[in-house]
């Protein structure tokens, strides 16, 4: 493993019980410290399976994954302490306020007292929750829920942030604002970010490197600029369609 590699997976495969096909097939990938890495692919490509194995939610059928040198098989507790996770679904209690949700998440990561309160306030202000942080989450708009969902993953300032489709359902303004915040975190705190997405334009703008995957395999890997150049595409979407085809997925 390279000294600056943050996430490293080798020959990673996953076959769900009762399924004939592999959700992940022999994936080998390295993500470096401090980079923003986009994992792109159509529905059913294996992005969420990859994400779940890296978070320790799933066990691989074969191969291994290491996060900051810790094995997902053996050192999951060490990994949990250094990662922040933003799930695809809204992972919040709808009847609690945004602030109470964040206070709970902060406590679960060991933050307490004044430090916790200040950190929650800082994040709320940064993400535009000056007025309605004490309202119940169920009264928030979809974009507001997404923002609180994101804050839940960065509140404890993790070394590695894992985001599964974090901007789904957001308007362009909120999406751009959120990605800018992530870019800022990446620069200021040297936070490594791995995120899965369908938004290729967004990935092209913000990611240092991307991997396009389909049917459980990595099809290409590199910086968006290099990939576009190498594949003679107009943009990343063009490259994406070239690798994954135009067939509609389930």
């Amino acid at each position: 493993m390279k000294e600056n590699s943050c996430i490293r997976v080798s020959n990673l495969s996953k076959k769900y019980s009762g399924s004939d096909s592999f959700a992940l097939k022999d994936v080998t990938l390295e993500i470096f410290n401090g980079e923003i890495f986009g994992l792109l692919g159509p529905n059913g490509a294996g992005k969420t399976t990859f994400f779940s194995i890296v978070c320790g939610l799933l066990n691989a059928t074969s191969g291994n994954a290491q996060i900051a040198g810790y094995s997902t098989d053996k050192d999951i507790e060490s990994i949990k302490k250094i990662i922040g996770v933003v799930p695809q679904d809204i992972a919040l209690y709808p009847t609690l306020s945004g602030r109470d949700n964040l206070m709970f998440i902060g406590r679960m990561y060991g933050l307490k007292g004044k430090v916790l309160k200040e950190r929650v306030q800082e994040c709320l202000s940064k993400f535009g929750f000056d007025k309605n942080s004490n309202e119940q989450v169920k009264k928030y708009s979809g974009g507001m829920k997404r923002r609180i969902n994101l804050i839940g993953g960065i509140l404890h300032e993790p070394e590695i942030l894992l985001l599964d489709e974090p901007t789904v359902g957001m308007d362009v303004q909120t999406r751009t604002s959120m990605m800018e915040h992530l870019k800022e975190l990446n620069k200021e705190k040297k936070m490594t970010i791995l995120y899965t997405s369908h938004y290729l334009e967004q990935a092209e703008l913000f990611c240092d490197r991307v991997a396009i995957m389909d049917q459980g395999q990595i099809l290409c890997l590199g910086s968006p600029v290099d990939l576009i150049k190498k594949e003679n595409g107009k943009d990343l979407e063009d490259v994406f369609l070239k690798f994954t085809g135009r067939k509609i997925r389930d």
Binding site: C55, G56, L57, E77, K80, V85, I90, M108, Y109, G110
Partner: peptide, 13 residues
Amino acid sequence: SEGLFIRMRTFPG
């Protein structure tokens, strides 16, 4: 059944 379970399981402990 919601995303909360994923968050819970990724909390330390």
